[in-house]
Amino acid sequence: MRSTIQDCPKRNIYNRSKKALVIIAISISVVACNKTTETVKEVKTAYIDTSELMKEYTEAKDLEAKYKAQSEEKGRQLEAEINRFKQDAANFQSQAQANGQEWAQKRGAELQKREQQLGYAQQALAQQLQQSSGAEMDSLVSGVKKFIKDYGKQKGYDYIYGTGDAASVLYAQEKYDITKEIIKALNEKYKSSSKSEEKVEDKKEEKK
């Protein structure tokens, strides 16, 4: 009986220690779960419709209008030359019989050369406009990406996805759509930078 009585405190201490360890383990699990929950809650995400962004971004619209105007202006000049060529070609057929075979061969070769030159001019114009607009558009897109990156850091986003032509989001709730916010912010930045450039130009004009 003595040994049994002596063992009881030991058992009680052991049981208490065991219970304490269980409580500690549960507490650690609860803390871990809470931390996981907190981490999930802290993730801030959003998405942007890139197609809509490029449609509504003022700088992108201005760039498109600029090259459309250039294309129309240079196209009109080329079109005038093409119309003159067409008129000369029409006159050639009626004059060929009157002026003889030698004249017709010489004139025909000249017209053929002009036609080739006009074709080259059309290709060169298209390539020139494409290269110039492509370079400016690449620069614009790089600027937009940098702006979104800075915007995300400033607003505390963990992820900002893009949808549209190069879709990387298959589904998202509309409450995460910040397209309009980005368009507004970009347009405000572009407007302020345009005003700054106008002031610089005005000062240059005043100095002259």
Rank of each mutant, 00 (worst) to 15 (best):
Y161G: 08
K55F: 11
S3D: 15
S196R: 10
R2Q: 15
V40M: 06
S168G: 05
M1C: 08
M1L: 10
N15I: 01
D158C: 02
K18S: 08
Y159G: 06
M137K: 14
M1P: 08
N15Y: 15
D138C: 11
I160D: 02
K18W: 08
K207V: 09
I28V: 04
K199Q: 11
E115W: 03
A121R: 04
E59V: 12
N12A: 13
I23L: 11
Q123I: 11
Q112F: 12
A167W: 02
I182G: 07
L53C: 12
E81A: 13
D158T: 13
Q116P: 09
A172N: 09
D62H: 15
S27I: 11
K18P: 00
A96N: 03
E102D: 14
K106H: 08
Q131C: 04
Q105G: 03
A104W: 06
V141T: 10
D177I: 05
Q128H: 04
E81Y: 09
I5R: 07
E188Y: 07
A167N: 07
K68W: 05
K191H: 14
Y57T: 07
L21R: 04
D158Y: 01
T39P: 11
Q128P: 02
E56Q: 11
K153S: 10
K74C: 01
N99F: 02
M54S: 09
I13D: 07
K44D: 07
R76C: 00
S193G: 06
G143T: 02
E197C: 02
D150W: 01
A124Q: 06
L125R: 09
G143V: 00
E188I: 05
V144H: 00
E181F: 03
R84S: 15
G100D: 01
A80V: 10
K35N: 11
T50M: 14
R16N: 12
G143Y: 03
G134Q: 06
K68E: 13
V40S: 11
K106E: 07
K180F: 01
E205I: 10
T179S: 07
L53E: 10
K41V: 15
K180S: 03
Y67M: 01
M54L: 12
I82F: 09
A90Q: 11
T4H: 08
Y161C: 14
K10M: 15
K208Q: 14
Y67W: 02
